[in-house]
């Protein structure tokens, strides 16, 4: 989103939104690149910040087409899962916000399609709207993590349970699951992708 040159000296709402976006862009991008380098705290903070923006975005989108706002939390979680499992598709030379927005919009359209809504309902918007509302009023999503985990193959479930839920190191998890350390890492990656796939499959039915 660009502010046209010479659009007036006074600070218009448009310009305020633009400057807020620049600030969050720089901050979020910093968190993202730190996370890509293996900084867990930065990655967690990124997902937390994104959850607020995504919740605001989906709540307004869904309300506009008279959909239940509780679906928003499902979508927030799907996008967070996608941002995490597909973070290697972000190129650090590019802007970060359009990358997240593309994922958020893709998931919105996919959601409406899966739940058999008419695509005429898909609102027209742009990347600016993603950052328009920061909403931290959280409800629980319809997904039950432990029930979802039970649908994964044992080796993936064990790796995720140890490293991601119990906070063990990869070395400890390898001993616990009886595999190598590299297998644990691969199983976490595959397991989280499989988790997203299970969610998608449940939505279709």
């Amino acid at each position: 989103m660009t502010t046209p040159m010479g659009a007036g000296r006074q600070v218009t709402p448009d310009r305020r939104q633009a400057s807020r976006m620049t600030a969050s862009e720089a901050e979020l991008k910093g968190l993202m690149t730190a996370g890509l380098d293996g900084d867990s705290a930065a990655h967690r903070m990124l997902l937390d910040r994104l959850s607020g923006y995504l919740r605001g975005y989906y709540k307004t989108r869904l309300a506009r087409i008279a959909r239940d706002a509780s679906e928003a939390e499902d979508l927030v979680q799907e996008v967070l899962l996608a941002v995490h499992t597909r973070r290697h598709t972000y190129h650090p030379d590019e802007l970060f916000t359009p990358w997240v927005y593309a994922i958020a919009r893709y998931k919105l359209i996919d959601h409406l399609r899966r739940t058999r809504a008419s695509l005429k309902e898909v609102p027209i918007d742009d990347v600016g709207e993603l950052m328009a509302h920061d909403d931290h009023v959280e409800v629980e999503s319809a997904y039950d993590l432990h029930r979802l985990l039970r649908q994964l193959p044992d080796r993936m479930r064990c790796a995720i349970q140890c490293v991601k839920l119990d906070g063990l190191s990869v070395t400890e998890a390898a001993a616990q699951c009886g595999t190598s350390e590299s297998a644990v890492k691969v199983n976490i990656q595959r397991g989280l992708r499989a988790l997203a796939a299970v969610i998608a499959r449940e939505k279709r039915t």
């Binding site: 996370g35 890509l36 380098d37 293996g38 900084d39 867990s40 705290a41 990655h43 967690r44 997902l47 937390d48 959850s51 919740r55 939390e73 927030v76 979680q77 967070l80 899962l81 995490h84 973070r87 290697h88 598709t89 190129h91 650090p92 959280e138 629980e140 999503s141 997904y143 039950d144 993590l145 995720i160 490293v163 991601k164 839920l165 906070g167 190191s169 990869v170 890492k185 976490i188 989280l192």
Partner: peptide, 23 residues
């Protein structure tokens, strides 16, 4: 599932991502 729980799970023990892996 609470979104906070999901975030703590995804944010636990984050691995470095190989930048060249994609291409």
């Amino acid at each position: 599932m609470k979104t906070d729980d999901l975030i703590s799970m995804l944010g636990a023990n984050v691995e470095r991502v190989d930048r060249r892996q994609f291409v």
